[in-house]
């Protein structure tokens, strides 16, 4: 509720100054702060929070498929905070996020990989994000020095993409998520766009979705050509967003509008 009273003050300040000056703390707000009080109540009440359906399904899947190699999910509590990672396989390095990793684990144990937005993939991702709740976001370059340069390049391309104007609306991410934080976008309040609550249960989708899907929705929002699911540009952008949000605690899988 503090927040509700805070924005009118801020917009008044912005009017007086003629600029949208944000304090450091305001640029580091999680998307949870931008939910309505009703949705915040829904999120905190485990009995009515739909995310728990996915987390519970994830626990069952974990017991049947993952536990043999990985033991308890808590042993991977840092995984959600450290992806995307640069993984080199067969001399081919690529950025891999948590949903990609879940699919390559499936292949390793001889199962068919499923899609990024597959219900089982999202359930396992939701489980790993829920055990990683409170962990500080900390994407790191790979240990071997060859990978570091590549990781820096990918990060640089993500940062460039973040500042590149796209689509018929001709907007870059930075124009809203740095320049218009707290302003009204139709019925929404613009957040700083930190990836703290993924995978999200988005009311608009009526289901869970990964950060891959959310970023594609942003492309659609500015009326740009949608990149294919899992395309390198989306992973670069995700890496940049994670680095930008470094040190912020994960919220666990969250409800978003």
């Amino acid at each position: 509720m503090r927040f509700r009273c805070f924005w009118p003050g801020l917009s008044l300040g912005a009017l007086l100054l003629g600029a949208h000056a944000l304090s450091y703390a305001q640029t580091r707000l999680s998307g949870d702060h931008f939910l309505s009080p009703q949705l915040q109540a829904m999120q905190q009440d485990q009995d009515v929070n739909p995310v728990t359906l996915w987390v519970e399904k994830g626990q069952t899947l974990w017991r049947n498929n993952c536990q043999r190699c990985h033991q308890a999910p808590e042993t991977l509590s840092r995984a959600a905070a450290e992806h995307p990672r640069l993984v080199t396989r067969n001399n081919h390095a690529r950025l891999v996020n948590l949903e990609d990793q879940i699919n390559s684990c499936r292949q390793r144990i001889g199962q068919q990989p499923k899609g990024l937005e597959d219900d089982d993939t999202l359930s396992l991702s939701a489980l790993l994000h829920s055990v990683g709740k409170g962990e500080k976001i900390n994407p790191r370059p790979p240990a071997e020095s060859v990978g570091v340069q590549r990781w820096q390049d990918e990060l640089g391309q993500g940062a460039a993409l973040y500042a590149t104007r796209l689509g018929r609306l001709n907007l870059a991410c930075t124009h809203c998520h740095d320049g218009k934080v707290g302003a009204q976008l139709r019925a929404e309040v613009v957040s700083p766009g930190h990836p703290t609550g993924f995978p999200i249960y988005r009311l608009n989708w009526q289901t869970m979705g990964s950060i891959d899907r959310r970023l594609r929705a942003c492309y659609s929002g500015v009326q740009a050509t949608l990149p294919a699911p899992g395309s390198p540009a989306l992973r670069q952008l995700e890496l940049f967003l994670k680095v930008r949000a470094s040190g912020m605690p994960l919220d666990g899988p969250a409800i978003r509008r």
């Binding site: 009995d47 009515v48 739909p50 359906l53 009526q206 289901t207």
Partner: peptide, 9 residues
Amino acid sequence: VRLLLGHSM
């Protein structure tokens, strides 16, 4: 009583 059913509807 609160009842939540997981179904895509």
